[in-house]
Simulated scan of single mutants.
Amino acid sequence: MKRTELKRATPLKSGGIQARERRKKRCKVCKAMFAPARDFQAVCGEIACAIAHAPANQVRARKALADIERKEIKVRKEKLKSRADHLREAQVAVNEYVRMRDAHLPCISCDSSPSDHDLITGSRWDAGHYRSVGACPELRFEPLNIHRQCVKCNRNLSGNAVEYRIRLVLRIGAEQVAFLEGPHPARKYTVEEIKTIKAEYRVKTRELKRAAA
């Protein structure tokens, strides 16, 4: 008598267990709902949650979460900055470059070389504009218009402009000084342009510091 082969109505999937959709879970760390890839998965796919859930990695987890929080705070602060804030930060970057560039030179207005070694805080050096930002905002970031200047000349003597010009001609030449004193088209920097200026001068300052090391 010929036997008839039995066939299953529903064939088994690979591994012997039929695939099924897993129910969503709540992450034990961030409390967000997620679809687990494994039955015993307790946290979502975020790296920070995975690290935080591992008992052996608590120190690392705290550091990772703190880094994430700092980055988020930085992003939020960046969004809250006004155009004036960006201008100030860019000017700080340019001024730092100027002081580093002129570190071997005396004050542009009085030829003095005051030392900072006996100061507890602060500095005896500024980055002084020949044509002030108020008088000529178009040249506020022009390096030819900014030179290392002692605090006395820059702040107490309002830039000591007459002496500044005499030494500026000797330093950069009469033609360049005439350019600074000439007319300049109005300039309205965009926030992105200001950010680019800040980044460029930070790079230039780092290069000067490496060269001086």
Rank of each mutant, 00 (worst) to 15 (best):
M100H: 08
R124N: 14
R171Q: 14
V92H: 13
S109A: 14
N95G: 14
T190S: 14
Q91G: 14
I194C: 05
P143C: 01
R165C: 02
H104W: 14
V92M: 15
I146V: 14
V191T: 09
C107K: 10
C107E: 08
H117S: 15
D126V: 10
R124S: 08
S109K: 00
S112N: 13
L139C: 00
C153H: 02
C153I: 04
R171S: 10
H184P: 11
I194M: 05
L168H: 09
V92R: 12
A90N: 03
K188M: 15
R140L: 09
V133Y: 01
V94L: 10
L105P: 01
R167V: 08
S115P: 09
E192I: 10
I146C: 07
Y97R: 02
E96R: 07
G159F: 00
V98P: 01
V191L: 00
D116C: 03
R140T: 11
T121F: 10
L180T: 00
H104G: 15
D118M: 15
D118S: 15
E163V: 10
L168W: 09
R131A: 02
S132D: 12
D102K: 01
S158H: 14
A161H: 11
L168V: 04
E96L: 04
R101L: 14
R99G: 10
C136Q: 09
G128W: 00
D126I: 05
S113Q: 13
V98N: 02
N145K: 03
L180I: 03
A174L: 13
